[in-house]
Simulated assay, not measured.
Amino acid sequence: MASYDITLKRTEPVADGTLALFFDKPDGFTFRAGQCVRLVLQDPPETDDEGNGRILSLASAPAESELMVATRLRDTAFKRVLSGLRPGTELTLKGPYGDFMLPAEGDVPVVFITGGIGITPVRSMVLQALDEGDNRAITLFYANRRLGDAAFLHELQQACAGRSNYELVTILTQDPGWQGEKGRLDEAMLRRHVANLTAPLYYLDGPPGLVSAMKSVLVGAGVPDDRVRTEEFAGY
Rank of each mutant, 00 (worst) to 15 (best):
G118T: 06
E232H: 05
G28S: 07
D43T: 07
E181I: 04
L82E: 00
L210A: 04
M1V: 13
L210G: 03
L130D: 14
R10H: 10
G133M: 10
D131V: 06
A63S: 15
A15C: 07
Q157K: 12
L140G: 02
T18R: 04
D107N: 13
E12A: 02
T139W: 00
D16N: 09
L85I: 08
R136I: 14
L185N: 06
G209R: 05
L168C: 08
P45I: 06
E64T: 01
R145N: 05
L185R: 08
L156H: 09
I113E: 06
T170N: 12
P45W: 12
S65R: 11
D75C: 07
A77L: 03
A104L: 15
C160W: 11
D134H: 13
Q35N: 06
T11M: 03
A143K: 07
E232N: 08
L21I: 02
I55A: 08
A143W: 01
R136C: 12
L204Y: 09
R184E: 08
N165W: 14
A77W: 11
D225E: 15
A15M: 03
A213C: 02
V169W: 07
G17M: 06
S57R: 02
C160V: 15
Q158D: 14
G206S: 03
Y202P: 09
I117T: 13
L8T: 08
A150M: 10
P176W: 13
Y236E: 05
G222L: 14
L153H: 07
V14C: 00
L58Q: 03
G17F: 03
R184D: 04
M1C: 06
V211D: 00
L140N: 04
R10V: 08
D5V: 09
D205I: 12
D75P: 13
M189Y: 01
L67F: 10
Q35W: 09
N165S: 15
L102W: 07
T30Q: 09
F100K: 04
V69D: 00
A188S: 10
V110P: 02
K25L: 12
R192L: 12
R145C: 02
E50T: 05
L130S: 12
R136K: 11
P26S: 02
E155Q: 14
L58C: 03
R10L: 14
G209A: 13
Y202D: 13
N52H: 05
Y142I: 05
V81K: 01
Y202K: 01
G162A: 13
Y97M: 13
E90Y: 00
T114S: 14
E105A: 15
A63Q: 11
T11N: 02
P26N: 03
